[in-house]
Nucleic acid binder design. Structure first.
Lengths: 167, 167
DNA sequence: TAGACGTAGA
DNA sequence: TCTACGTCTA
C-alpha cells in the first residue's frame, strides 16, 4: 500500500484542519502531521540547519508543558527515562531544531495529546500553527537542566477547544 | 473518534480477507486483526482460560519462525531483550494462550510481517486461520529454553503469496 | 546502536 | 510497574 505521508513539510498540511482528532501517534504519521512515532519534536532540513515541523504536547509523560489560549510553554526533550532522571537536556536534535525555528521564523504545527478518561491511550488534536518566541534553560523538578520553549499561536486560525491547560 | 476494534474475537474478522496488507501494528489494531501493539501473540478469555486470537510472525526480530505453504513453526515470546538473551521462556501469557488454543481446538489468525526493502518498517499481511498442532521446548541459539509451536493452516482458504519462508 | 512526550495488558 | 516479534531518526 501507499503511505499518505510522502512529504515532510513546514506549515499547514493540506486537508488537515484545526480541531481534527486522532487516536495514535501512528495516525499523525500517516496523515502527515507529525512523523516522529515516539518523540515529541519532529524536524527537517531547511537549508543548512534543521528546523522543527511539529511538536506533540502529550499529557502524562512527565513533562510539564502548559497551554493557554494562544501561548504555550513546551519542555525540551531528553534527560529522562520514564520517571528516572538521567541527565541534563542538551541543545541537540529536536531541541536545537526548535531553537532554529525561532531563528528562521518558521511556524511549528502543534498537536495536543490528552489522556483518555479510561486511561487507554490518548487523543491527539491538531491545534494549529505557532511561532517560537524564545527559549531558555531552567532547573527541572528533579534538578536537571531542561529547555523551555515559549510559543505563540499565529492569529487568525479557528479556535480549538479540545482542551486548554491554563498557564 | 470511534475505534473500529470494538470486539476481540476468535476466528475471521468480518471484512478482512486473506492477503490484506497493512503497514503498522497499529493498523492491525484498528481493523481488529491483532490488538497487541507490541507483542506477537494476542489472546482473550475463553471461559476459564485464555486462548490465542492471533499471532504476528515478524521478520528481523531475533525470532526464528519458519513458514511453509500450510505449516508454520512459531517461536514463543519472552526471554530476550533485543539481541541480549535474558532468561528462559515460560509457559505464561501468550505462550500459555497458544497452548490453550491447542487444547480447546480454537483457530488462530496468522499475520506475516516482512521487513520492507528500504528497511523503513514492515509490511503485514493476513495469512488466514491456523490450528495449533503441538508445542514443545528446545534450546534456542543462545542456550535458553524457548517454546516452539507448530501450526497448520486450515484447508479451503485462499492462498496467500505475500511471502513464504521454506521450512 | 541507542534514544524518543508510544500503547496495551498482566 | 514491567514486558511485549514497535517504529523512526540520528
Amino acid at each position: 500500500g501507499m503511505q499518505l505521508n510522502e512529504k515532510k513539510m513546514i506549515g499547514p498540511v493540506p486537508g488537515i484542519e484545526v480541531g481534527d482528532e486522532y487516536q495514535f501517534k501512528a495516525e499523525l504519521n500517516i496523515i502527515g502531521l507529525h512523523f516522529n512515532m515516539r518523540g515529541g519534536i519532529d524536524y527537517m532540513d531547511d537549508g543548512n540547519m534543521k528546523v522543527a515541523t511539529s511538536i506533540v504536547s502529550s499529557e502524562g509523560s512527565g513533562y510539564t508543558d502548559s497551554c493557554g489560549s494562544d501561548v504555550m510553554f513546551y519542555c525540551g526533550e531528553g534527560g529522562h527515562k520514564g520517571v528516572k532522571v538521567i541527565k541534563d537536556q542538551k541543545l541537540v536534535a529536536g531541541n536545537l531544531a526548535l531553537a532554529n525555528s525561532m531563528e528562521r521564523k518558521t511556524s511549528v504545527r502543534v498537536i495536543l495529546g490528552k489522556e483518555r478518561a479510561d486511561h487507554r491511550g490518548k487523543d491527539y488534536v491538531y491545534d494549529g500553527l505557532y511561532m517560537v518566541d524564545k527559549y531558555w534553560t531552567e532547573k527541572g523538578p528533579h534538578g536537571n537542566i531542561m529547555y523551555k520553549f515559549k510559543l505563540s499561536r499565529i492569529a487568525g486560525q479557528p479556535s480549538c477547544d479540545f482542551f486548554k491547560r491554563l498557564v
